[in-house]
Amino acid sequence: MPANHQSEVLANSGSAKRVWRRLRQQKFYQISVLIGIAYLLVFAYVPMVGLIIAFKNFKLSSGIPGFFTSEWVGFKWFLEFYRDISFWQIIRNTVVISLLKILFTFPIPILFAIALNEVRKEGLKRFAQTASYLPHFISWVVVSGMLFSFLNSQNGVVNQLLMAVGWIDKPISFLASASYFWPMLVLSDIWKEMGWWTIIFLAAIAGVDPTLHEAAVVDGAGRMQRILYVTLPSIKTTIIVVLILALGNLFGGGLGGSNFEQAYLLGNPVNNSVSEIIQTYTLKMGLAQGRYSYATAIGLIQSVISLTLILVSNYSAKKASGVGLF
């Protein structure tokens, strides 16, 4: 054995020992990581095997073995979805609802966090913060019931109020009107989730070095200038990370991840033209009918688009600001 090779082997075995020793020292941390990895493998990666049924004619009666034994049908289900008379309408609804929600629900927690941070009265600040994040814990089922009670045209409090102040002559059919559906989704999502996401941005703001603010004050910066030139740049990384995560879940409903719940619970035959989205369609025409292959194909389309979005947004964020998830 040549001398240089021998020394390389010795060095390698030495470094392997060092790694092993370090692993033993960190065994509790490493075990925690392994549990996390195992969780991901079992619940996120293993189920991906099932994606093959998107390309197969899987029948319920064949059970799990049918994943592998059923016949291949190529892109049949993808094409069926594409040729569906409602395809473009469903895609439009999914994209528009998702974009509207990102557009309006993403900046509001940031603005609210900044506003809260500027409140000097501690009691008021705490009250506002608690009151704003409590709705997060109410399920969408309950929220949809509340919306019905508030907005229905028979005895909804909103209609009664608007009529009492003379703004409208007859009740507005908020629940059965296509034109009110999208605003209703965005506003209810903001009401429910704004306070929750504010916590993250408040935490980021709390981490801003106070000396930066002191220096800005010394330089004569006013409150708005400090917000624009100290607070916002300091929490830029957090904003970008949250934005990338929200974009990755764009079709799921962004921050709140509530597209399905809202469309399912607030959608009805009257507003169907604007409320049917990929997820509700998958449930109705795929899962509810036992058409798992078809449902998987539609789900896969959505996943591919979401993955593309997260890759593109991460790349763009990195290019623009040097900050990215990976």
Binding site: F148, N152, S153, Q154, S173, L175, A176
Partner: peptide, 21 residues
């Protein structure tokens, strides 16, 4: 006949019927 009547859930139909209106 209101458009909203098609948007009701069965329990909401029942609730409105019970109002007697």
């Amino acid at each position: 006949l209101s458009a909203e009547s098609f948007a009701y859930k069965p329990e909401q139909f029942s609730q409105i019927m019970k109002s007697g209106n």
